[in-house]
Simulated scan of single mutants.
Amino acid sequence: MFPPTRVQVASRAVLKLFHLILVAFCLRSSRLPRWILWLRFLCWMCFFITIWAHSIIYGHKYDCNMDCLLRHMLTFFQTVSHAIIVVCNSLQGFRVLQNQMEEVIVFETSDPWVAFTVMAMILPICGVEYLVCSNAPKNSFRVRMYHLKTLPSHLALQMKIIFFILEVMEVNIRVRQAKHQLQILARELSSRWPQCKQRPEYFDQQTYRIKALKRRYNELYYLFDRINCCFGGSLLTIIIVFFALFVCNSYWLFVDVRTRPLRIYAVLLNLGFIFNVALQMSAACWHCQQSYNLGRQIGCLISKLVKPQGSKRYNDLVSEFSLQTLHQRFEVTAKDFFSLNLHLLSSMFAAVVTYLVILIQFMFAERNSKGNSG
Results as ranks from 00 to 15, higher is better:
residue 117 T to C: 10
residue 266 A to H: 08
residue 194 P to G: 06
residue 279 L to I: 10
residue 34 R to C: 10
residue 255 V to F: 03
residue 122 I to A: 00
residue 32 L to G: 02
residue 254 F to S: 14
residue 157 L to A: 07
residue 73 M to Q: 11
residue 257 V to K: 13
residue 304 K to R: 15
residue 250 S to W: 00
residue 367 R to W: 01
residue 329 R to K: 15
residue 108 E to N: 15
residue 24 A to C: 06
residue 278 A to V: 14
residue 151 L to V: 12
residue 258 R to Q: 11
residue 83 A to N: 04
residue 260 R to K: 15
residue 358 I to M: 10
residue 338 F to R: 12
residue 16 K to E: 10
residue 328 Q to E: 10
residue 281 M to F: 02
residue 175 V to H: 06
residue 344 L to I: 02
residue 323 L to C: 07
residue 251 Y to K: 13
residue 363 M to K: 13
residue 192 R to D: 03
residue 145 M to Q: 11
residue 201 E to Y: 03
residue 113 W to P: 09
residue 45 M to V: 04
residue 207 T to D: 05
residue 264 I to N: 10
residue 173 I to W: 02
residue 132 V to E: 00
residue 213 L to P: 01
residue 335 K to W: 04
residue 195 Q to I: 03
residue 157 L to P: 02
residue 163 F to H: 13
residue 358 I to H: 04
residue 266 A to Y: 00
residue 204 D to V: 02
residue 203 F to L: 09
residue 175 V to R: 14
residue 184 I to S: 08
residue 8 Q to R: 11
residue 162 I to C: 12
residue 102 E to Y: 04
residue 300 C to S: 12
residue 91 L to P: 03
residue 361 Q to K: 15
residue 174 R to W: 03
residue 137 P to A: 02
residue 304 K to Q: 14
residue 350 A to C: 12
residue 149 K to I: 10
residue 328 Q to A: 11
residue 185 L to R: 12
residue 7 V to P: 09
residue 71 R to W: 01
residue 356 L to V: 04
residue 199 R to D: 06
residue 130 Y to D: 10
residue 29 S to H: 01
residue 274 I to K: 13
residue 224 F to T: 08
residue 300 C to Y: 13
residue 153 S to M: 00
residue 223 L to K: 04
residue 139 N to D: 13
residue 46 C to S: 12
residue 285 C to V: 12
residue 16 K to C: 11
residue 192 R to V: 06
residue 323 L to W: 00
residue 71 R to M: 05
residue 319 S to P: 05
residue 307 K to T: 04
residue 59 G to V: 08
residue 73 M to V: 09
residue 292 Y to W: 12
residue 59 G to M: 09
residue 167 E to N: 13
residue 120 A to W: 00
residue 320 E to Y: 05
residue 50 T to M: 13
residue 60 H to K: 14
residue 64 C to G: 09
residue 147 H to T: 07
residue 292 Y to L: 15
residue 59 G to W: 03
residue 184 I to R: 14
residue 239 I to H: 07
residue 50 T to H: 14
residue 233 G to R: 13
residue 49 I to P: 05
residue 310 G to L: 08
residue 7 V to M: 13
residue 53 A to Y: 05
residue 106 V to K: 10
residue 252 W to Q: 15
residue 373 S to G: 04
residue 101 M to F: 01
residue 8 Q to M: 06
residue 265 Y to N: 15
residue 237 T to F: 01
residue 13 A to H: 09
residue 271 L to G: 15
residue 270 N to H: 08
residue 55 S to I: 02
residue 295 G to Y: 02
residue 361 Q to H: 11
residue 116 F to N: 15
residue 172 N to D: 02
